[in-house]
Design a protein around this nucleic acid. Structure first.
Lengths: 264, 264
DNA sequence: ATCAGCTGTGCCGCTGAGTGGAACACGAAT
DNA sequence: ATTCGTGTTCCACTCAGCGGCACAGCTGAT
């Protein structure tokens, strides 16, 4: 029964907001529109309840409903989300510099922040021709394999680092083969002020990432370029990425709007 | 008492989701962080209730709490918001082309969709040096003065057009001086396939905007450049903007992900 | 030192908003 | 015809949410 009870059983009734969040969480990159039935199934909320809640979410603008009845994430959410200091706030000041970096290199340019035990991709610039990257804006990246991830992890609070290092399991995605090696890599990242990443999964790419700091010196974001392996030597990019990250850091001092360390 | 009752009186109790939305709506561009007291005041929700709700929103990731107690919009919202087809979905396919337009012109490039009786700015590219624009990503623009606004209005459902035209009052922001003239302008926009806008408010700028269409021909977005008045003749930009908008339109045919008319 | 006013927070009895099962109408596949 | 899935409305039960109140801490003015 404990099993049953947890899975939204009758009479129970659990925090409304939590359920609303579950409904929103039912949407993913490859499920951007959901029928009521899907919505109910994926969220584990009974049909009638799901309908009532979803409708309220529509009223509020968090969802929209298509003419065919399908539910879709609404624009209102975008409107509010852009007010997140660590999200669009940061992005707003970083964008022009990322743009420059992009113009010069014509490679993918990434901006990410840490959220819990993941990195969250805040912005990505890509040329059309460019080989596809695995990650989309708003998506999550592992802290242990990507360039931005390593930078963020290297400057994360001790507990996050320890936890991540302990739980680390080598994957095909990374060259790092053991927790010990990861620890060594992180130290190197801190010393050098930048990180290299490598990925073979969908396409073979290499990345260089550098930290963006708040006025008080805390690392609040990471910035990187992603280049196809086999192009010009990676070293070529280290300086550009670092100076760009520094430019953003400097700009953060003037526009105090976005500067804050993670609350966790 | 009706007055009193409406304003969050005792016992009343109104839909939880609506209140949550009110809490989120308390955040604006120049109020990106709020203390509990402010939050309570701006949303009209009693302190104790506001605290309880806000905490739940924090649990869910919609808000974050700073070490000093201030509330801030959370990253989780960004994560979900990026799944909005008419928001980031559209943006994702448009970006590379906007990027090109930006690279060539080095002027502000705007992408907006219509939401109700406003335009909502989905993306903006800006060079650092560029003179500031009034509008930020995620912000709302009037349909009657801006270039993108005119394009969106010109192709909006009849009822929206009529309502907007009737309620139109000439402002310093626009050259259009009467409802009749607005109506004529819109016809011109439809015929010509682009709109010009002018603005004198903070800085004197001119804009050229063109429609982006869904596979079924419906106009789903508008794309524009914003240039300082007095630069090269506006005519210079008409073709570039139009072809860029067409390129995005074409791309929408392949990635069906973002193509849909507004649900209203 | 004392006060007044502001905060954020915890407590707790009352009650109506939220709950989900049941029953419905519709369409499509069997 | 029958079965399945869908979106939808209805409604009686009840627990989650409500907000007034009290308390503690931190200002600054007296």
């Amino acid at each position: 029964m404990t099993e049953q009870a947890r899975a939204g059983r009758t009479g129970a009734g659990e925090a409304v907001i939590e359920r609303a969040a579950r409904l929103l969480a039912a949407f993913t990159a490859d499920h951007r529109q959901l029928s009521l039935a899907e919505l109910s199934r994926r969220s584990g909320i009974p049909r009638s309840s799901a309908l009532r809640l979803a409708r309220k979410l529509v009223d509020v603008g968090a969802l929209e409903r298509r003419s065919d009845g399908a539910f879709v994430v609404g624009l209102r959410l975008l409107e509010v989300a852009t007010l997140a200091p660590r999200g669009h706030g940061l992005r707003a000041v970083a964008m022009p510099y990322m743009e420059d970096l992009f113009a010069v290199t014509r490679q993918h340019v990434l901006l990410a922040v840490r959220d819990g035990d993941d990195a969250l991709l805040v912005e990505r610039l890509s040329a059309h021709g460019a080989m596809p990257v695995q990650y989309r804006v708003g998506g999550r990246l592992p802290l242990t394999s990507t360039g931005v991830g390593l930078v963020l992890l290297a400057h994360a609070p001790a507990d996050v680092q320890e936890r991540t290092i302990e739980e680390f399991v080598p994957s095909a995605d990374t060259e790092i083969r053991s927790p010990a090696e990861l620890r060594r890599t992180l130290a190197e990242v801190r010393r050098g002020g930048f990180a290299r990443g490598r990925q073979s999964e969908p396409w073979s790419v290499s990345t260089v990432a550098a930290p963006v700091r708040a006025p008080d010196g805390a690392v609040v974001a990471a910035l990187s370029v992603v280049v196809p392996t086999g192009g010009p030597d990676l070293g070529t990019y280290v300086h550009v990425v670092q100076t760009t990250a520094l430019a953003v850091t400097r700009e953060l001092n003037y526009s105090s709007v976005a500067a804050d360390r993670t609350p966790t």
